[in-house]
Simulated scan of single mutants.
Amino acid sequence: MAPSHVLVPLDGSPLADDALTQALELFDCRVTVLNVVTPLDAGMSEGGILESGEERRQDARDRAARVISQARSRATEIDREIETVVETGDPAETILEYVDAHDVDHVVMGGHGGERGSIARRLLGTVATSVVGEAPVTVTVVR
């Protein structure tokens, strides 16, 4: 069955951009782009290495705005409309919460390989592996 609401988590990476392109080309339905800003004090952020402060928070907000703006531009180029959302939190948890709360029935996301951990993490990436393993909907990982 064709999806009615596709979620595309974007982090500004080339694979995430490819995921958006694929979602827009394959699915003629509602598409929401989600950018997750990781809090500065979270383990995945630079907060553990560099001092936190308003400048770093502003940099994160600016980066999110650029990611969303680029997504809108890409959609406009192919005459599509998208919804955009910026949330703050752990990326995998935030994606899964968004799926549950907004009637998403398909996720299309980029995968990132890592050097540590299981074979799945090396093939898909930590966030993608978590979403694939826990999402109650179909997840397409673009590599």
Rank of each mutant, 00 (worst) to 15 (best):
T21D: 13
L10D: 05
P39W: 13
A42I: 01
V31P: 00
A42G: 12
V33Q: 08
E51H: 06
N35V: 10
D18Y: 11
D28G: 05
L7H: 01
G53S: 04
L7P: 01
D17Y: 05
D28V: 03
D28K: 09
F27H: 15
S13T: 14
C29L: 10
A16D: 03
S45L: 08
E54V: 05
D41K: 08
D41I: 00
E25W: 04
L10W: 04
V31T: 14
I49G: 03
E51G: 10
V33L: 07
S45V: 07
E46Q: 12
G47Y: 09
G12R: 04
L50R: 08
G12T: 03
P14T: 14
E51V: 07
H5G: 07
G12E: 01
S13D: 03
D11K: 03
V6E: 07
A19N: 06
L24T: 00
A19F: 08
E54A: 08
G53K: 02
E54L: 05
M1C: 04
V31H: 03
V33C: 15
V31F: 00
L40K: 01
G43R: 05
H5E: 10
S13W: 09
E51N: 08
E51T: 09
A42N: 13
E55W: 06
D11P: 02
L15Y: 11
D17W: 04
H5P: 07
I49R: 11
H5F: 10
R56I: 11
M44G: 04
V6W: 06
L20I: 07
V37Y: 02
A23D: 04
E51A: 15
G48H: 13
L26E: 12
C29F: 08
L10Q: 14
V33M: 09
E25M: 11
T32L: 08
V36K: 11
V36C: 13
L20R: 11
V31C: 06
D18I: 04
G12F: 00
S45N: 05
L26S: 13
G48I: 13
L34Y: 04
E54Y: 02
R30G: 00
P9G: 00
R56Q: 15
V33A: 14
V37T: 13
T21A: 14
M44Y: 13
L15F: 12
G47D: 07
L50P: 00
D17V: 13
D28E: 14
V6R: 08
A23H: 05
V8I: 13
L40P: 07
P39Q: 09
A42P: 11
L40V: 04
A23C: 04
Q22E: 10
P3V: 07
D11F: 02
E54I: 04
D17G: 10
G48D: 12
L10T: 06
S52M: 12
N35T: 15
L15D: 08
P39V: 09
G43I: 09
S13V: 02
L15A: 11
L10F: 05
G12H: 03
L20N: 09
A23T: 06
L15S: 12
P3S: 14
P14E: 15
D17T: 14
F27Q: 06
D28P: 01
I49E: 08
M1G: 13
R30V: 07
G53V: 02
S52Y: 04
E46I: 15
A16H: 04
V37C: 01
R30C: 03
L34E: 02
D18R: 15
N35A: 10
V37P: 01
L24H: 03
D18E: 14
L10N: 06
A2N: 11
L24Q: 00
